[in-house]
Nucleic acid binder design. Sequence first.
DNA 1: CTTGGGTCCTGTGCGC
DNA 2: TGCGCACAGGACCCAA
Length: 297
Amino acid sequence: MMASMPELPEVETVRRGLAPHIEGRRIKRLVLNRADLRFPFPKDFAARMEGAVVARFTRRAKYLLAEMQSPKGKPFFWLSHLGMTGRFMLTPPQATTLEPGLYAHEVAPPVAAKHIHVDIAFDDGTKLAFADPRRFGFMDMFAAPETGSPFLKHLGPEPLGNDFNEGVLLAAAKGRKTPVKNFLLDQRVVAGLGNIYVCEALFMAGISPKRKAANLGAKRVARLAPAIRDVLARAIEAGGSTLRDFAHEDGAMGYFQHDFKVYGREGEVCSAPECSASVKRMVQVGRSSFYCSACQK
DNA sequence: CTTGGGTCCTGTGCGC
DNA sequence: TGCGCACAGGACCCAA
């Protein structure tokens, strides 16, 4: 079993878990326990957040996006990125203790107090904390998405949305000399994939991570686009089941227990039927690629 | 425009 | 047993 890093499916699961608890609630108080995460918090972040209502809690790529309704000013957007180890922890109004792991995206021990960087209190008593030991996460604030934030400006299509298909992928791959692995990690091509799901999608599509994007060809792209969608959709389903499970047994929620086919399985026998090759690992763009050289061409 | 490399951060797990 | 180091990862930034 492997804890998974927050890529699109994990972020979506966090969104679904949190949305019903915070939508429509007003932030009474927000406390920053430090001035920065990966980047500094926006100027006057706490002051501008206080008093605002979370009108809608959405997602774009790996970003959580809250539409905030401010009584004293214009609506704005609050963006959060979980980085590698970022987690939101929710305490419902009646509860007295923080519930560590609730909506966390990975198997993790309780977070030390020193890693809790943001504390939010809502007007109904709901509390929300953001913890991130490695501080690869960050938050931002802006008036309009797409134009207002450097993080959203150049994002490609949502892989599960209507704007993503083989045609788009094929067009984007044209002339790209970079390996398909690097190509799919490029958020301008398709938004929300990370190292794990790129490895899995390429395995599912039978494509070598080393293949140049420009040399994919229509046939492989026709396998790749659905593979990307399938691998993400199934992971979201798995995340959804962890959300449902939590309602019945407390404690273990939000923990993904994905069964990856190649990721993290170096040396193991390939899971494809009839294939006896072993899963290989190599480094691309400074990150591990796991693949089966017999199945992926 | 494309591509590659450096940087940020810290807990974990390995080898010696 | 303890130390040092590679590794995990996303996204920005800069240079060529």
